[in-house]
């Protein structure tokens, strides 16, 4: 069974939750949005052969990066399908940045970075 992008993200987010628990507050609402974005991301790449998914949390910015390595080429005709275009649009609305690079042997790495899921803890008013 094909691994989903959310499986990858969920693992690193759970680890980061423990690490950041002292200083930062985890935003469940933003995480729900991110979950939906993962579904959109998987749908967008449904016809592409994915070699691997990677996920990483930036220690300083607390942003979550999701990378998909695609084989042999990331060669889409996304825009001829209005459904895929609208999926891409919804995904982009919640994305901080998008990066394309070539790893080796024509493997394209597509990385999307989501905004931070953590907020600095503030004392509640008494």
């Amino acid at each position: 069974m094909r691994m989903t992008s959310f499986d990858t993200i969920n693992f690193v987010v759970e680890e980061a939750k423990k690490e950041f628990a002292d200083k930062y507050e985890f935003c469940e609402r933003d995480y729900e949005i991110l979950k939906k974005c993962c579904v959109l991301f998987d749908y967008l790449l449904k016809d592409v052969e994915i070699i691997s998914y990677e996920s990483e949390i930036n220690e300083f910015e607390k942003t979550t990066a999701l990378t998909a390595e695609c084989q042999p080429t990331l060669n889409y005709v996304w825009l001829t399908d209005p459904k895929l275009l609208s999926v891409f649009q919804r995904l982009m609305l919640n994305t901080k940045s998008l990066k394309f690079e070539q790893k080796e042997d024509e493997i394209i790495r597509m990385t999307i970075t989501f905004p931070s899921l953590w907020h600095i803890k503030t004392d509640s008013p008494k």
Binding site: T73, F100, I107, I108
Partner: peptide, 9 residues
């Protein structure tokens, strides 16, 4: 645009 592609070169 009418088409979008990402190609390794």
């Amino acid at each position: 645009s009418d088409n979008f592609e990402v190609i390794p070169k």
